[in-house]
Write a protein that binds this DNA or RNA. Sequence first.
DNA 1: CACGCGTGGGG
DNA 2: TCCCCAAGCGT
Length: 363
Amino acid sequence: MTPALRGDAPALRAALLEWYDRQGRTLPWRVRPEDRARGVAPDPYAVWLSEIMLQQTTVPHAAPYWARFLQLWPRIEDLADAPREDVMREWAGLGYYARARNLHACAQMVASQLGGRFPSDLDGLRALPGIGEYTANAIRAAAFDLPASVVDGNVERVITRLFAMEAPLSSAKPAIRKEASRLADPDRPGDYAQAIMDLGATVCTPKNPSCGTCPWARACAARAQGDPLRYPVKPVRKPKPVRHGLAFVILRGGAGRREVYVRPRPDKGLLGGMLETPGSEWLEDVGALPSRDAAAPAALNWRKASGVSHVFTHFALELTVYAARAPKGWRGPDAHGRWVPAEPLSASGLPSVMKKAVRAALG
DNA sequence: CACGCGTGGGG
DNA sequence: TCCCCAAGCGT
C-alpha cells in the first residue's frame, strides 16, 4: 500500500501542495501561492539574492542581510556599480565569502551583458558565477515559475527518508535526483520547489521530525521502519585539527570612536577579499610559530589580551591576541592597510574571527 | 570528485 | 561543552 503510494507522484504532489498552501512559510523573498495566483510575480534579482545568501546558511541569519542589500542596492545595476569593498563589508559575518565575490561578479555580468535581466534557462543561469545546479533550478522555479527540480540538503533528507535509501549520501545522489525530478510538479513548479524545501526545513527536520504532521507520512518508508533519523546516511566525519596563530590589534582614537588597523587578505582562499588584523601564519605546530616580536607588524608597546577561539569549516583556530595603541600621527605599519571603526565593531566590516580578536583587544 | 570554504544556533 | 548542522559552489 505505501510502496504504491510512494510511486503515485500525482497524489504526493497534491498532498504536498495542499500542505504548503496551509503550512508553508511566509518569507520576505517569497511570493505566496495566493499572491502568485493573483498574478504577483517575484523579482528575480531579489530571489537570486536570497538563494545565494541561503546557501549553507540559516534563514534567520540571512534574512537581515537580504533586507539590507536590497535597501542599499534595490536593482541589480546598483549592486553591479557598487565598489566591491562595500559589498564585502556588507557581507561580513555571513561567511563563505566566495559567495560575495561571485555575487558581485554575477551582478556585473547580468547588468552589463544581459541587460539587467536574469536568464530563465538552466544553462544560462549555470553560466553565471556562484550559480550551480541547485541555485539555477531554484531561481528557475521560484523566480520564473518554470519546470525545475531543486535538490538541496532538505530535499536530499526528504527523499532519502521517503524511499529509505540505504546508500551513503554521496552515492545516493543520482537516485535522489531521479526521484525528485519524477515528483516535481509541472503545473505549479515554483510552489512545489519551495514546498518540498519547506517540508524538509520545518517537518522532515534532521533531529526531531514531526512525522505526525507530515503530508507524506503514509508513503514514507523511513517512517514505516520507525527510524527516520537513519537517513540520509552520512559519511563519518574527520576530526578538526587545531591551528594556532598570533593576532595584532592596533588601536587609535578615544573611547567611543576607536579605530583598528586592518589590511586586505588575498582574493583567494580562506576569508578571501576580506579585511584582517595583521597576524602570523596559522599552524598546527605551536612550536613552529614565530615569536611575538618576529611576527608583529611594528615595534609597539604590545599588551597581551585574552585569547580567541574560532571554528572554521575544516579547522579550529586558537589566536593569541596582542594589543597596542598607535603612536600619535602614525599612519600604520604599511601602505596597504586602513583604519576602520572598532566602535561600534558592527561598522568595521570585519569577518567574525577578526571581530573576536578586536573585541579581545578592546576588553 | 573530494576537499576547501564561515558562522551562529540548537540539542 | 561539544557536536551537528543550514536553501552549495568551485576546483
